[in-house]
Amino acid sequence: MSAIPKHIENPYVLYMDGVSVSFDGFKALNSLSLVIAPGEMRAIIGPNGAGKTTMMDVITGKTKPDSGTILFTDTHQQEYDLTRFDEADVANLGVGRKFQKPSVIESLTVFENLEMSLKGGRGLWAALVHKLTPERAAKLDEILDMIDLSDKRDWMAGSLSHGQKQWLEIGMLLGQEPDLLLIDEPAAGMTDEETMKTAELFKRLAQKHSLVVVEHDMDFIEALDCKVTVLHEGHVLAEGSLATVKANQQVIEVYLGR
């Protein structure tokens, strides 16, 4: 792992500068720049095709950017160039990702899903001889409690409701103990009550982790009460509080005006 000399003054968790990606001539990301501070919660909005999902793909190593810098600092202040790593590496460095469609392992139980996500033990041998220690079991109970699925711990994940799957996936993110959480449309398919509960949970998480939340639901973003970045055609159109962003003329034209 190569450490890069620090050259950015303010501390950050994620630093993206001039990141571009194109598919067959279509510029999915066009010189995107974004900085997330430690412990910050950031909401990303933007119309379809603005590059939100591609942005998550390049951060998590799924897609290699054509150009640009993506740096990540973990809790030990170690800095990494994320473009050099693949998905598993990035995950193990401390970046967790939640997909747009809830993606849990449907034929494993809720408990087993969470157990898989618990930090550490990613190696083959460790997995083969793995035994659940009391500390880890306690940790799992804690997460189960947090995501309100304690009574369903032995249910097959596939038999959960859509909202519950979303929560389970969030729980799996927590099990990974990441420094940075990337969350794609968490409120989709949730009832209003669940949405508000999720927003509460995120606010609590933001005290220990950094969060990047991509969302369409304006009520949800309002409830998050955080800095908002508007993406359009692969780059940042505006940044600021929800109110300032909403007042921005360009934003109204490309996004809210529609």
Binding site: A88, A91, F99, S103, L108, E115, A127, H130
Partner: peptide
């Protein structure tokens, strides 16, 4: 074993397993 459950995870949702930090190819 837990390895078996990782295998099932790979079967059902390969990219999820990757994003959980498992080296699917190994």
């Amino acid at each position: 074993s837990k390895l078996g459950r990782v295998l099932v995870a790979i079967r059902d949702a390969e990219s999820r397993a990757r994003f959980l930090g498992y080296r699917v190819e190994y």
